[in-house]
Design a protein around this nucleic acid. Structure first.
Ligand SMILES: [Zn+2]
Ligand SMILES: [Zn+2]
Ligand SMILES: [Zn+2]
Ligand SMILES: [Zn+2]
Lengths: 135, 135
DNA sequence: TATGCACCTTGTAGCAACTACAAGGTCAAG
DNA sequence: CTTGACCTTGTAGTTGCTACAAGGTGCATA
Protein backbone atom coordinates (compact mmCIF):
# COMPACT_ATOMS: atom_id res chain seq x y z
CA UNK A 1 0.00 0.00 0.00
CA UNK A 2 1.10 3.56 -0.63
CA UNK A 3 1.62 6.17 2.04
CA UNK A 4 -1.77 7.78 1.48
CA UNK A 5 -3.59 4.51 2.06
CA UNK A 6 -1.61 3.78 5.19
CA UNK A 7 -2.34 7.30 6.34
CA UNK A 8 -6.06 6.85 5.87
CA UNK A 9 -6.03 3.40 7.46
CA UNK A 10 -4.39 4.70 10.63
CA UNK A 11 -5.69 8.23 10.83
CA UNK A 12 -2.17 9.61 10.45
CA UNK A 13 -1.01 12.27 8.04
CA UNK A 14 1.42 11.12 5.38
CA UNK A 15 3.86 13.74 6.57
CA UNK A 16 3.78 12.28 10.04
CA UNK A 17 4.52 8.82 8.69
CA UNK A 18 7.57 10.13 6.84
CA UNK A 19 8.59 11.90 10.02
CA UNK A 20 8.39 8.63 11.97
CA UNK A 21 10.58 6.97 9.39
CA UNK A 22 13.16 9.75 9.61
CA UNK A 23 13.14 9.41 13.38
CA UNK A 24 13.62 5.67 13.23
CA UNK A 25 10.29 4.99 14.93
CA UNK A 26 9.06 3.10 11.87
CA UNK A 27 11.23 0.91 9.61
CA UNK A 28 11.73 2.25 6.10
CA UNK A 29 9.30 0.97 3.52
CA UNK A 30 10.15 -0.77 0.25
CA UNK A 31 10.11 1.44 -2.83
CA UNK A 32 8.26 0.98 -6.09
CA UNK A 33 9.96 1.56 -9.46
CA UNK A 34 8.85 5.16 -9.30
CA UNK A 35 10.32 5.55 -5.82
CA UNK A 36 7.00 5.58 -3.99
CA UNK A 37 6.98 4.02 -0.52
CA UNK A 38 5.30 0.61 -0.52
CA UNK A 39 4.00 -0.59 2.83
CA UNK A 40 3.21 -4.08 4.10
CA UNK A 41 0.79 -5.26 6.76
CA UNK A 42 3.69 -5.33 9.18
CA UNK A 43 4.07 -1.62 8.71
CA UNK A 44 0.37 -1.18 9.30
CA UNK A 45 0.65 -3.08 12.58
CA UNK A 46 3.73 -1.14 13.65
CA UNK A 47 2.17 2.23 12.90
CA UNK A 48 -1.02 1.23 14.70
CA UNK A 49 1.07 0.34 17.74
CA UNK A 50 2.86 3.67 17.62
CA UNK A 51 -0.29 5.72 17.18
CA UNK A 52 -2.08 3.92 19.95
CA UNK A 53 0.80 4.43 22.34
CA UNK A 54 0.98 8.12 21.40
CA UNK A 55 -2.76 8.50 21.95
CA UNK A 56 -2.25 6.98 25.38
CA UNK A 57 0.12 9.83 26.10
CA UNK A 58 3.46 8.02 25.83
CA UNK A 59 6.32 10.19 24.61
CA UNK A 60 8.28 9.31 21.51
CA UNK A 61 11.10 8.09 23.76
CA UNK A 62 8.69 5.83 25.63
CA UNK A 63 7.25 4.56 22.37
CA UNK A 64 10.77 3.64 21.30
CA UNK A 65 11.19 1.68 24.52
CA UNK A 66 7.86 -0.05 24.08
CA UNK A 67 8.77 -1.00 20.54
CA UNK A 68 12.12 -2.38 21.63
CA UNK A 69 10.50 -4.36 24.42
CA UNK A 70 7.77 -5.76 22.22
CA UNK A 71 10.45 -7.33 20.06
CA UNK A 72 11.92 -9.38 22.92
CA UNK A 73 9.27 -12.05 23.15
CA UNK A 74 11.00 -14.10 25.83
CA UNK A 75 11.71 -11.32 28.28
CA UNK A 76 9.52 -10.88 31.33
CA UNK A 77 7.02 -8.15 30.70
CA UNK A 78 7.75 -6.33 33.93
CA UNK A 79 9.40 -3.44 32.16
CA UNK A 80 6.41 -2.91 29.90
CA UNK A 81 4.26 -2.92 32.96
CA UNK A 82 6.46 -0.41 34.65
CA UNK A 83 6.33 1.97 31.68
CA UNK A 84 2.55 1.89 31.69
CA UNK A 85 2.55 2.38 35.43
CA UNK A 86 4.74 5.46 35.13
CA UNK A 87 2.57 6.89 32.40
CA UNK A 88 -0.50 6.31 34.54
CA UNK A 89 1.11 8.15 37.42
CA UNK A 90 1.99 11.07 35.18
CA UNK A 91 -1.54 11.29 33.85
CA UNK A 92 -2.91 11.18 37.38
CA UNK A 93 -0.62 13.99 38.40
CA UNK A 94 -1.67 16.09 35.42
CA UNK A 95 -5.29 15.53 36.38
CA UNK A 96 -4.63 16.73 39.92
CA UNK A 97 -2.87 19.81 38.58
CA UNK A 98 -5.67 20.61 36.16
CA UNK A 99 -8.32 20.17 38.82
CA UNK A 100 -6.72 22.78 41.04
CA UNK A 101 -6.30 24.99 38.01
CA UNK A 102 -9.99 24.61 37.29
CA UNK A 103 -10.86 25.59 40.86
CA UNK A 104 -8.71 28.67 40.64
CA UNK A 105 -10.30 29.72 37.38
CA UNK A 106 -13.76 29.21 38.82
CA UNK A 107 -12.90 31.34 41.81
CA UNK A 108 -11.52 33.97 39.52
CA UNK A 109 -14.70 34.02 37.44
CA UNK A 110 -16.91 34.31 40.46
CA UNK A 111 -14.82 37.17 41.80
CA UNK A 112 -15.88 39.60 39.08
CA UNK A 113 -18.76 41.74 40.30
CA UNK A 114 -17.79 45.01 38.76
CA UNK A 115 -18.29 46.39 35.30
CA UNK A 116 -15.18 48.37 34.62
CA UNK A 117 -11.75 46.90 34.20
CA UNK A 118 -10.17 49.07 36.86
CA UNK A 119 -12.64 47.68 39.37
CA UNK A 120 -12.49 44.10 38.11
CA UNK A 121 -11.20 41.66 40.67
CA UNK A 122 -10.04 39.32 37.95
CA UNK A 123 -7.51 41.81 36.70
CA UNK A 124 -6.60 42.66 40.27
CA UNK A 125 -5.98 39.13 41.35
CA UNK A 126 -3.89 38.38 38.32
CA UNK A 127 -1.50 40.99 39.61
CA UNK A 128 -0.98 39.01 42.81
CA UNK A 129 1.22 35.92 42.98
CA UNK A 130 -0.36 32.48 42.88
CA UNK A 131 -1.45 31.06 46.22
CA UNK A 132 -3.21 34.17 47.45
CA UNK A 133 -6.25 34.19 45.20
CA UNK A 134 -9.13 36.65 45.70
CA UNK A 135 -10.56 36.53 49.24
CA UNK B 1 16.80 45.63 40.69
CA UNK B 2 18.87 43.50 38.36
CA UNK B 3 17.55 40.63 36.32
CA UNK B 4 18.73 38.00 38.78
CA UNK B 5 16.84 39.59 41.63
CA UNK B 6 13.69 39.92 39.58
CA UNK B 7 14.11 36.30 38.55
CA UNK B 8 14.35 35.15 42.14
CA UNK B 9 11.47 37.36 43.24
CA UNK B 10 9.12 35.89 40.65
CA UNK B 11 10.43 32.36 40.29
CA UNK B 12 11.33 32.99 36.65
CA UNK B 13 14.64 32.25 34.97
CA UNK B 14 16.57 35.27 33.81
CA UNK B 15 16.58 33.84 30.31
CA UNK B 16 12.81 33.69 30.32
CA UNK B 17 12.61 37.33 31.36
CA UNK B 18 14.84 38.34 28.45
CA UNK B 19 12.67 36.19 26.21
CA UNK B 20 9.54 38.03 27.38
CA UNK B 21 11.20 41.33 26.62
CA UNK B 22 12.17 40.18 23.13
CA UNK B 23 8.59 39.05 22.57
CA UNK B 24 7.17 42.35 23.73
CA UNK B 25 5.34 40.74 26.65
CA UNK B 26 7.32 42.85 29.09
CA UNK B 27 8.47 46.45 28.51
CA UNK B 28 12.23 46.88 28.18
CA UNK B 29 14.05 47.78 31.36
CA UNK B 30 16.30 50.77 31.92
CA UNK B 31 20.00 50.10 31.64
CA UNK B 32 22.78 50.85 34.11
CA UNK B 33 26.07 52.41 32.99
CA UNK B 34 27.42 48.94 32.47
CA UNK B 35 24.43 47.97 30.31
CA UNK B 36 22.79 45.79 32.93
CA UNK B 37 19.01 45.73 32.92
CA UNK B 38 17.56 47.75 35.82
CA UNK B 39 14.02 46.89 36.84
CA UNK B 40 11.41 48.87 38.74
CA UNK B 41 8.50 47.75 40.90
CA UNK B 42 6.26 48.23 37.88
CA UNK B 43 8.24 45.58 36.11
CA UNK B 44 7.88 43.31 39.10
CA UNK B 45 4.10 43.77 39.02
CA UNK B 46 3.93 43.19 35.28
CA UNK B 47 6.02 40.04 35.41
CA UNK B 48 3.97 38.74 38.32
CA UNK B 49 0.83 39.27 36.26
CA UNK B 50 2.33 37.43 33.30
CA UNK B 51 3.60 34.51 35.35
CA UNK B 52 0.33 34.13 37.18
CA UNK B 53 -1.64 34.11 33.93
CA UNK B 54 0.78 31.56 32.45
CA UNK B 55 0.44 29.37 35.53
CA UNK B 56 -3.32 29.55 35.06
CA UNK B 57 -2.78 28.04 31.64
CA UNK B 58 -3.27 31.11 29.46
CA UNK B 59 -1.26 31.10 26.25
CA UNK B 60 1.17 33.88 25.45
CA UNK B 61 -1.38 35.27 23.00
CA UNK B 62 -4.02 35.30 25.71
CA UNK B 63 -1.60 36.92 28.14
CA UNK B 64 -1.02 39.66 25.58
CA UNK B 65 -4.77 40.21 25.38
CA UNK B 66 -5.10 40.27 29.15
CA UNK B 67 -2.29 42.81 29.41
CA UNK B 68 -3.86 45.01 26.77
CA UNK B 69 -7.22 44.83 28.49
CA UNK B 70 -5.83 45.57 31.93
CA UNK B 71 -4.55 48.88 30.57
CA UNK B 72 -7.99 50.09 29.54
CA UNK B 73 -9.34 50.98 32.95
CA UNK B 74 -12.63 52.38 31.73
CA UNK B 75 -13.67 49.53 29.47
CA UNK B 76 -16.26 47.04 30.64
CA UNK B 77 -14.54 43.93 31.90
CA UNK B 78 -16.69 41.56 29.91
CA UNK B 79 -13.85 40.63 27.59
CA UNK B 80 -11.61 39.70 30.48
CA UNK B 81 -14.39 37.60 31.83
CA UNK B 82 -14.83 35.88 28.51
CA UNK B 83 -11.14 35.04 28.24
CA UNK B 84 -11.19 33.42 31.66
CA UNK B 85 -14.36 31.58 30.74
CA UNK B 86 -12.77 30.17 27.60
CA UNK B 87 -9.69 29.08 29.48
CA UNK B 88 -11.87 27.37 32.06
CA UNK B 89 -13.68 25.48 29.33
CA UNK B 90 -10.40 24.34 27.82
CA UNK B 91 -9.11 23.14 31.15
CA UNK B 92 -12.34 21.26 31.76
CA UNK B 93 -12.03 19.58 28.39
CA UNK B 94 -8.45 18.60 29.08
CA UNK B 95 -9.56 17.07 32.36
CA UNK B 96 -12.21 14.99 30.61
CA UNK B 97 -9.66 13.77 28.08
CA UNK B 98 -7.15 12.87 30.75
CA UNK B 99 -9.74 11.01 32.80
CA UNK B 100 -10.56 8.73 29.91
CA UNK B 101 -6.86 8.29 29.26
CA UNK B 102 -6.40 7.30 32.89
CA UNK B 103 -9.17 4.72 32.60
CA UNK B 104 -7.60 3.21 29.51
CA UNK B 105 -4.21 3.00 31.17
CA UNK B 106 -5.74 1.33 34.23
CA UNK B 107 -7.48 -1.23 32.05
CA UNK B 108 -4.24 -1.84 30.25
CA UNK B 109 -2.37 -2.40 33.50
CA UNK B 110 -4.95 -4.81 34.83
CA UNK B 111 -4.86 -6.78 31.60
CA UNK B 112 -1.34 -8.12 32.18
CA UNK B 113 -1.49 -11.55 33.75
CA UNK B 114 1.35 -13.18 31.93
CA UNK B 115 5.07 -13.07 32.54
CA UNK B 116 6.58 -13.10 29.10
CA UNK B 117 6.31 -10.29 26.62
CA UNK B 118 4.91 -12.47 23.86
CA UNK B 119 2.02 -13.41 26.13
CA UNK B 120 1.56 -9.94 27.58
CA UNK B 121 -1.83 -8.47 26.86
CA UNK B 122 -0.45 -4.98 27.22
CA UNK B 123 1.78 -5.41 24.24
CA UNK B 124 -1.00 -7.20 22.41
CA UNK B 125 -3.56 -4.50 22.97
CA UNK B 126 -1.19 -1.77 21.93
CA UNK B 127 -1.13 -3.42 18.54
CA UNK B 128 -4.86 -2.92 18.18
CA UNK B 129 -6.42 0.42 17.26
CA UNK B 130 -7.91 2.61 19.96
CA UNK B 131 -11.52 1.95 20.84
CA UNK B 132 -11.22 -1.79 21.06
CA UNK B 133 -9.17 -2.15 24.21
CA UNK B 134 -8.38 -5.58 25.67
CA UNK B 135 -11.34 -7.96 25.90
C1' DT C 1 -2.57 12.58 -27.43
C1' DA C 2 -2.86 16.01 -24.31
C1' DT C 3 -4.10 17.62 -20.07
C1' DG C 4 -5.74 17.76 -15.73
C1' DC C 5 -5.66 16.21 -11.19
C1' DA C 6 -4.49 13.55 -7.25
C1' DC C 7 -0.88 11.59 -5.48
C1' DC C 8 4.09 10.96 -4.50
C1' DT C 9 9.19 12.67 -3.65
C1' DT C 10 12.86 15.59 -1.01
C1' DG C 11 14.14 19.45 1.69
C1' DT C 12 13.40 23.24 4.56
C1' DA C 13 11.09 26.12 7.81
C1' DG C 14 7.63 27.04 11.31
C1' DC C 15 4.80 26.35 15.71
C1' DA C 16 4.85 27.24 21.56
C1' DA C 17 7.33 28.63 25.18
C1' DC C 18 10.98 28.32 26.70
C1' DT C 19 16.01 26.41 27.73
C1' DA C 20 20.85 25.90 26.98
C1' DC C 21 24.89 27.11 25.51
C1' DA C 22 29.05 30.09 23.85
C1' DA C 23 31.97 33.94 24.13
C1' DG C 24 32.70 37.70 26.33
C1' DG C 25 32.00 42.09 29.74
C1' DT C 26 31.48 43.83 34.89
C1' DC C 27 32.07 43.94 39.68
C1' DA C 28 33.10 42.92 44.51
C1' DA C 29 35.85 40.00 47.71
C1' DG C 30 40.06 37.82 49.16
C1' DC D 1 45.38 40.17 40.48
C1' DT D 2 42.61 36.57 40.26
C1' DT D 3 38.49 34.14 41.26
C1' DG D 4 33.71 33.76 40.94
C1' DA D 5 29.13 35.33 40.48
C1' DC D 6 26.68 37.88 37.77
C1' DC D 7 25.51 40.26 33.39
C1' DT D 8 25.44 40.91 27.96
C1' DT D 9 24.22 39.24 22.99
C1' DG D 10 23.33 35.75 19.73
C1' DT D 11 22.28 31.28 18.22
C1' DA D 12 20.58 26.70 18.44
C1' DG D 13 17.99 22.94 20.67
C1' DT D 14 13.69 20.95 22.71
C1' DT D 15 8.77 18.00 21.34
C1' DG D 16 5.93 16.19 17.84
C1' DC D 17 4.53 17.25 14.37
C1' DT D 18 2.70 20.51 10.26
C1' DA D 19 3.19 23.36 6.19
C1' DC D 20 5.05 24.67 2.34
C1' DA D 21 7.89 24.62 -2.24
C1' DA D 22 9.36 22.60 -6.38
C1' DG D 23 9.18 18.93 -8.87
C1' DG D 24 8.06 13.73 -10.46
C1' DT D 25 4.31 9.95 -11.34
C1' DG D 26 -0.05 7.64 -12.56
C1' DC D 27 -4.43 7.43 -14.30
C1' DA D 28 -8.89 9.05 -16.24
C1' DT D 29 -10.97 11.83 -19.49
C1' DA D 30 -11.76 15.15 -23.75
ZN1 LIG E 1 5.90 2.35 39.46
ZN1 LIG F 1 -14.66 41.82 35.90
ZN1 LIG G 1 -17.99 31.62 26.96
ZN1 LIG H 1 2.52 -8.12 30.84
Amino acid sequence: MRIGELAKATGTKAETIRYYEREGILPAADRTDSNYRDYSDNHLAALTFVRRARQLGFSMAQVRELLDLSDRADKPCQEVDELVHEQLEEVEQRIVDLLSLRDELRLLLRSCQANRIDECRIVGSLARPLGRVTR
